[in-house]
Amino acid sequence: MTPSNEREMAELVQDASGPLSLNGGGTRPIGSPVAGRALSTAALSGISLYDPGALTLVAGAGTPMAEIEAAVASEGQRLAFEPMDHRVLLGTEGVPTIGGAVAVNASGPRRVQAGACRDSLLGVRFIDGTGTLVKNGGRVMKNVTGYDLVKLMTGSYGTLGVLTEVSLKVLPAPEATASLSVAGLGIERAVEAMSAALGSPYEVTGAAHRPGGPDTAAVTTLRIEGFEASVTYRAERLKALLAPFAAVSVERDQEAVARDWQAIRDVAALADGEAAVWRISVRPSDAPMVVERLPEAEILMDWGGGLIWARLAEEVDLRAALSDLSGHATLMRASSERRARGDVFEPQAAPVAAIAEGLRARFDPRGILNPGRMG
């Protein structure tokens, strides 16, 4: 079912006699499979308002990300949260949409400086599980009253409502960018180097590390963005700051920098093969322990070590290996059989699970919206 407007969407949800499997651009949702009738937001597409002067954009949930990115780029602006393209890692097709990005809180390397997707969101419109249209937030950051459903809907994976429209802030695109690379660091030294850079006054907007392999050397990469003169100055200062760790190389070609960080954003280094891929969020200081306990895993680290992507065999009990560490792990890629077994998302503590269950009962009392998706 692909309703063409909010009214039709509300009627379909209201009249539903069983579970609904929500999707946007068909890139295959993350999470456990949902046994239900397909309901798509693809036709709820288009930019209804874009005010470059106010740094504000409003679009239907089914609007392709490419359309939004092209529109803001034409005005010298961008989406600050740098959403990843999951098709690269999942090996799927389809069209990424803004609603899908909001539903999974897609947030790329720039999160360390600009925040997550939810931090760019100003307002949402959605259909709850009773078929009622709900509006929250607005077109300016201070227009948020009552329950902050904007934040609540972001990352809810379609389990609380069907997103129909989103309002978000955009930011100016930088005049210049640079990447600084340090080769040959071990995990602990790489985390120290990234922490030093992120703790400096030089406004780092990306901090990633790829451990070495049989045919590749380890590389730690940092990104800075801004006005040309500022980037030049900060690149030199960061180079001096990182000199005690190892030799530092600086890339200033904009296309090369964009290409490298797009690969980091989309976890391209772990895209090959059919092994499971996990997304692990931990304290950066715990990153060396994570890597040590997963000796067979291929690793990519982002967010200064706070985000670890790990590719390893499906039969490995990753959560058992990391059970005493604070954080959470999400199974991002696996066979349909493995995903059907559940535990795709980190099990919630009892108090949190009770709150989540209460929210689902409030917004989807019949339990028809993506049931089991976050199992």
Rank of each mutant, 00 (worst) to 15 (best):
S200G: 09
A190V: 09
V291K: 03
A197W: 04
A297D: 01
V219R: 05
R234V: 08
A218P: 09
G306Y: 00
G184W: 01
E225T: 12
L242R: 04
E251P: 05
R210Y: 07
P214T: 12
F227S: 09
T216Y: 09
Y202E: 04
V191A: 02
G212V: 09
A176S: 11
P295T: 13
E228T: 15
A197L: 09
M301Y: 00
S285C: 11
T216W: 10
S285L: 15
A240T: 15
P214K: 13
M289H: 13
A269E: 14
D253N: 06
D266T: 11
G273R: 02
I224E: 06
A183T: 15
Q262T: 15
S285H: 14
L270C: 10
E192C: 07
S200D: 09
I264T: 14
A287R: 06
S181C: 12
A197R: 01
L242K: 03
G184Q: 05
L171I: 15
V282L: 06
V282M: 03
E292R: 15
S249P: 08
E203N: 12
I264V: 15
S281D: 09
Q254E: 14
L222R: 03
R252V: 12
V290I: 14
R259G: 10
L300I: 12
A176M: 10
D302V: 04
A271R: 03
L198Y: 05
V170E: 00
T164G: 04
T205F: 03
L180C: 10
V162D: 00
R283P: 10
E175P: 06
R237S: 06
A178R: 04
A193Y: 03
G305C: 02
I280F: 01
W278L: 01
E203Q: 14
S167T: 06
S179K: 01
A275F: 05
D286H: 15
G213E: 14
V170A: 00
A196F: 09
V248A: 06
G199W: 09
V282N: 02
L160W: 10
A247F: 08
I224L: 10
A193S: 12
V170W: 00
A217C: 07
P295S: 12
K169A: 05
A247G: 12
G212M: 09
